[in-house]
Design a protein around this nucleic acid. Structure first.
Lengths: 203, 203
DNA sequence: CACTAAAGCGGAGGCGCCTCCGTTTATTTA
DNA sequence: TAAATAAACGGAGGCGCCTCCGCTTTAGTG
């Protein structure tokens, strides 16, 4: 305690560690799932005991799997980003590529919206744990690139932009001030952006 | 709680608010003093109840004066920086100006040393509460400037440097890695710096 | 001084954090 | 399938956080 350890969550080696016992794996999954909804509902400071309770496990089990609150938050956050990015592939398969892009951006905005309230805690986590930041932002921009390139390739959006342009355009959303109309304004921004992208498509 | 408030400690208006009742002022002073030593001894996560206990007041009194831990930490931190800077004037009055500068830099290093362990928490506080950062860093560089200018003026150190040069030189100390020899190395650095400053003094 | 209103006090109580360890369960071995 | 053992469980307990409110003290006022 004299020397509080760096607040970063330590990396577990990517080399898959021995598989968990079946019950342990079940509990762990359950905890992550419940934690995601409790954090969403009550904020990032939600009681860990409540999470354990709702997951139907003892508090000791929660702590064994996630030795600190930050461990749990990190896992939940990674899972959510992963889900968002995975949706890119599904949308691409099911819709015209410009529609897929638009829908994905809309989801992106919604997702950011849910995270606005947590901004300070999350920012601390992201600055503290730099791999978390680079991993997730890399994953997000990869998903976006996939969608933009597909839409450019089949001519449903103009060809003189790339994924990083779009990401920058979306970036404005992130930094916009926290007002009640934030969400609506962001949605308008996505629409506007799409109109711009569609304009002059197919040359 | 849905919307955790910005973690910044809100500015109390500089316009002096009505003076506290005598007992309240006494307790407040006592708390700050005790808190400084408890934080120094146990780290920034020390128990607030222990602080109240040692100050001989109830926990309720502590919370009335300092509604959050951050409030208390901020006040202690400001007081310490203030003390450090006030020492500049006293040293200047009592010693030759180069000696005053050297001694002050030594104290600065010692002070930073005590804060190393708290670095993460303090960094969060400083990035969260930007007035705290600008107030204190302004105050520190002002104290340093006073000492450097005096020493340059009476020719005990060379004339082709200014306070910001010296501050930058000291800045290296801050970012040096956290090793056991940190403190000794920093002291050597101060000596080295002073030798350099004295070299060719008086033109 | 005596009285009073306002200011301040303080600690009980409720809740959450986290550790520790006796008990239970899944898996391996025979 | 039974025994052995390693892995995992879970909650009691101790501690700290913070709020709330009945009690005490101070600073005016006559």
């Amino acid at each position: 305690m004299a020397f509080e350890p760096p607040a970063s969550v330590d990396r577990k080696p990517e080399t898959a560690q021995k598989p968990l016992r079946a019950d342990a794996q079940r509990n762990r999954d359950r905890l992550v799932e419940v934690a995601a909804s409790v954090f969403a509902e009550r904020g990032i400071d939600a009681s860990l005991e409540e999470i354990a309770r709702r997951a139907g496990v003892g508090i000791g089990t929660l702590y064994r799997h996630f030795p600190t609150r930050e461990h749990l938050v990190e896992v939940v956050y990674r899972r959510e980003v992963e889900g968002l990015c995975a949706a890119a592939g599904e949308l691409a398969a099911r819709h015209a590529s410009d529609v897929a892009l638009e829908e994905w951006m809309r989801r992106f905005v919604d997702y950011i919206a849910t995270k606005r309230g947590l901004a300070t805690s999350l920012r601390i986590l992201l600055t503290t744990n730099s791999t978390l930041f680079s991993d997730t932002s890399g994953r997000v921009s990869q998903a976006l690139r996939q969608l933009v390139e597909a839409a450019v390739a089949d001519g449903t959006i103009r060809g003189d932009v790339d994924a990083s342009d779009v990401l920058h355009a979306l970036g404005g959303i992130y930094s916009a001030p926290e007002t009640p109309e934030w969400r609506d304004r962001s949605r308008r921004l996505v629409k506007l952006l799409m109109d711009g992208l569609r304009f002059g498509a197919g040359k």
